[in-house]
C-alpha cells in the first residue's frame, strides 16, 4: 500500500510498473485495475493554460491512508497505490493515479472505481485554473 503526494511531474505508467515490480506480493496478483486522471486544456467551455492544485497536507495524507484502509476492508485487494500531484500543473500532466491489485478482477475493478470517486469528492484538494487572463477556483467536480 502506498500514498504519493508529489509536487514533481510523474509518469503514471512508470509509477504503477515500479510499484508492482517492487511488491513482495506480486506473485499473488491476478488482476490490476488502474485509473489515471490528467489535466485537460479546457473546462466548462474555457481554455485552461495551467492549474495550481492546493491541498491540506496533513489531512490529505491521513485521508488517503484512510481510503486505502477502507478499500481493503471492503474488497480483497492485495495492494493499492494512490498518487496525486499538487502545485503547478500543465495540460496533459497526470494529476492522479490509482492502482489496485487483487487475485481476481472484480475486487480490483470495484475498489479502483470506489477509490477515485471517494478521492474526488472528499480528499482535501482544490484546483485553481488559469483561464485566459484570470485565475479561477474550480467550484465542483464533474459527476462522472
Amino acid at each position: 500500500m502506498a500514498i504519493i503526494i508529489s509536487e514533481q511531474i510523474f509518469d503514471p505508467w512508470k509509477l504503477i510498473s515500479k510499484h508492482q515490480q517492487q511488491s513482495q506480493l506480486a506473485s499473488q496478483f491476478g488482476a490490476t485495475a488502474s485509473f489515471i486522471g490528467s489535466m485537460r486544456d479546457f473546462n466548462d467551455d474555457h481554455e485552461v493554460s495551467q492549474m495550481v492544485l492546493e491541498h491540506y497536507p496533513e489531512m490529505t495524507q491521513r485521508y488517503l491512508e484512510k481510503l486505502e484502509a477502507d478499500a481493503k476492508r471492503q474488497w480483497p485487494i492485495i495492494d493499492c497505490l494512490i498518487a496525486h500531484r499538487v502545485g503547478h500543473i500543465n495540460p496533459a500532466d497526470a494529476i492522479v493515479v490509482i492502482a489496485c491489485w487483487s487475485a481476481h478482477r472484480r475486487a480490483a475493478l470495484d475498489a479502483c472505481n470506489w477509490l477515485i470517486e471517494e478521492l474526488k469528492f472528499k480528499a482535501p484538494f482544490w484546483k485553481k485554473e488559469t483561464r485566459n487572463d484570470s485565475d479561477v477556483w474550480v467550484e465542483h467536480n464533474t459527476s462522472g
Binding site: 474526488k120 472528499k122 482544490w126 467536480n141
Partner: peptide, 24 residues
C-alpha cells in the same frame, strides 16, 4: 477529520474551513 459546524472544540484543536474539494 471531517466535522460539523456544531461539533465541539477543545484546547489544542486544529479547526480548518474549506470549500468543496475538487481533486482527482
Amino acid at each position: 477529520e471531517y466535522a460539523k459546524l456544531n461539533s465541539s472544540v477543545s484546547d489544542g484543536d486544529e479547526v480548518a474551513f474549506f470549500p468543496p474539494v475538487t481533486g482527482g
